[in-house]
């Protein structure tokens, strides 16, 4: 469709929408600017203690220092890699569990209650056990990230699979489709939106797993830096790492959102 072919009212409508979008973006930037400005001002004039609450300029200096020492990249990379591993393993494993449970009604009925209980268990309670079982290295952290995302993935996907329209399954059966065909031609494609929604949740989940894992063990990573910073009372460091973490998680979420946009079929 060409913009010039549209009716004047339609053009007007699109322009309005575009203008609205720009205004929203401007307001978002303005909010951030005011927030940072107020924060900086409050510490400069001494309303709050910059040593405890840090400030944008302190964060910036810490960031530059970390960068110049060459340490920033090492820590960022460690955490990101652990998160991506946890995310991938958790998602794939959770999906496999969901497929097995969908496949056999008996297996589903036997294991669903266990899954529900596991889901409500705060996974961090397993931390000490994980350290004993998986050691104090990266594997413990990745295990934590996997544990936190795998159960929710399995449950979400299973619910999605089971909600596939019964009449569409009947249609498949009128062509004598077997279970594998029903899954790969109908149930799975019908649940791509469920999968994408689950991926979005898992971005957050695997970051939670990685950071809590790093709190417990590890000698590198953003979680380690945050704990270290708070122990030696370098709150600038804590704040800087938190902000870097925000940006990383946001970027990863953005990538999933982009993926979602590219597979929309209706």
């Amino acid at each position: 469709m060409n913009f010039n072919d549209l009716s004047p009212l339609h053009k007007e409508f699109l322009k309005k929408q575009k203008r609205r979008k720009v205004v929203i973006h401007l307001l978002q930037i303005a909010f951030l600017a005011v927030f940072l400005g107020a924060w900086e001002l409050a510490t400069q004039v001494g309303w709050v203690d910059g040593f405890i609450f840090s400030s944008p300029s302190r964060v910036w200096n810490t960031f530059v220092n970390l960068f110049e020492e060459g340490n920033l990249f090492k820590h960022v990379w460690a955490s990101t890699w652990e998160t991506i591993l946890g995310f991938a393993i958790g998602t794939i494993l959770g999906m496999l569990i969901a497929i097995i449970l969908w496949w056999s009604d008996t297996v589903k009925r036997v294991f669903e209650p266990y899954l529900v209980v596991l889901n409500s268990l705060p996974k961090i309670a397993l931390g000490p056990l994980i350290i004993i079982w998986a050691g104090t290295g990266k594997s413990a952290i990745v295990t934590m990230a996997v544990l936190i995302s795998v159960v929710i993935t399995a449950l979400n996907m299973l619910v999605g699979f089971c909600q596939t329209e019964q009449n569409k399954i009947l249609l498949m059966q009128t062509f004598q489709a077997n279970k594998a065909q029903i899954f790969f031609k109908l149930v799975f494609p019908a649940n791509i939106p469920t999968l994408l929604a689950t991926l979005k949740i898992n971005v957050g989940m695997s970051w939670v797993g990685t950071i809590t894992g790093e709190y417990l063990v590890s000698k590198e990573g953003l979680g380690y830096l945050i704990v270290y910073g708070s122990q030696v009372f370098r709150l600038d460091l804590v704040m800087t790492c938190t902000i870097v973490l925000c940006m990383l998680a946001g970027a990863m979420y953005g990538m999933v959102a982009l993926l979602e946009k590219s597979v929309k079929f209706d």
Partner: peptide, 9 residues
């Protein structure tokens, strides 16, 4: 069947 049940994808 009663409805077309075309797959939207």
């Amino acid at each position: 069947l009663q409805q077309d049940h075309l797959f939207p994808w």
